[in-house]
C-alpha cells in the first residue's frame, strides 16, 4: 500500500502553502505585465508515470513549454513546467513590451517562466523553512515528441508523483499560462513530514 495519499489536514495545509506561493507569483506576473491576474483554486492530484501523458495531453497542446528542475533540502525536489497556449504566444512579446531585436521570443518566454517558477517556489520553500536551487530553464517548443522525450527522462526515476496545476489568467489580454509542478512520491513523503510538523503546532 502506498503511503502517498494525503489526509484531509495534510491536503488543506499543502493547498494553503500553495495559495500563498501562487499569490506572490501572480503579483510578480501582474507587475511584470502591468495588468491583473485572475487566480483559480489550484488542482492537486496524484499521477502515475504511465498516466502522465494522458493527464497532460490537454496541456501539451501548448505552443511552448518551459521546464525547470528544483531541488531543496530534505529530499524535496521536482520539475516545474510552464505551458503557454498557441493562440496566446504571439501576444507575449507585445505584453512583455520588449523592443524588437532586444530579446528573441525564446529568451522572453524563458525569462518570464523563470520569474514565475522561482517566485512561486522560493515563497513555497520559505514557508517550510527550506531553500530551493534550480536547474537552467529549458524551452521545449511546440514539438510534442520533444516534450514527451524530456518528460520521459524526468519521470524515469518515479512511478508516482503529485501533480499541482495552477492557472494564471491575464484577463485583459485573454492570455493564459499554466504552471504544472510534478513532485515525485519520495519528495512528497518528505513534504508530508514537514506538513505534519506544521500541523503539530496547531
Amino acid at each position: 500500500m502506498s503511503t502517498f495519499e494525503l489526509n484531509e489536514d495534510q491536503q488543506d495545509c499543502l493547498q494553503e502553502l500553495i495559495n500563498v506561493a501562487m499569490g506572490q507569483a501572480s503579483d510578480q506576473l501582474a507587475r511584470y505585465l502591468d495588468t491583473f491576474v485572475y487566480l483559480k483554486v489550484p488542482s492537486i492530484e496524484p499521477v502515475n508515470s504511465e498516466q502522465l501523458f494522458e493527464t497532460l495531453n490537454q496541456d501539451l497542446k501548448a505552443a511552448a513549454v518551459v521546464s525547470q528542475g528544483f531541488f531543496g533540502y530534505e529530499g524535496i525536489r521536482g520539475e516545474a513546467l510552464l505551458m503557454y497556449q498557441p493562440q496566446d504566444s504571439h501576444r507575449l512579446a507585445d505584453l512583455l513590451g520588449y523592443e524588437a531585436g532586444e530579446m528573441t521570443f525564446d529568451e522572453q518566454i524563458i525569462d518570464l517562466s523563470s520569474i514565475l517558477t522561482t517566485t512561486f517556489l522560493n515563497v513555497f520553500a520559505s514557508q517550510i523553512d527550506n531553500q530551493m536551487s534550480y536547474s537552467a530553464p529549458r524551452l521545449l517548443s511546440a514539438n510534442n515528441a520533444k516534450v514527451s522525450e524530456h518528460l520521459n527522462q524526468q519521470s524515469f526515476n518515479w512511478d508516482l508523483a503529485l501533480k499541482v496545476k495552477i492557472s494564471y489568467q491575464v484577463t485583459d489580454y485573454s492570455f493564459n499560462c499554466d504552471m504544472v509542478l510534478l513532485i515525485p512520491e519520495e519528495a512528497i513523503n518528505n513534504i508530508k513530514a514537514v506538513i505534519d510538523r506544521i500541523l503539530e503546532d496547531f
Binding site: A21, G23, Q24, D27, F36, L39
Partner: peptide, 9 residues
C-alpha cells in the same frame, strides 16, 4: 486576509 496580494486586488 488574502494571498492574492496584487495591488489592484
Amino acid at each position: 486576509i488574502s494571498a492574492d496580494v496584487q495591488p489592484e486586488m
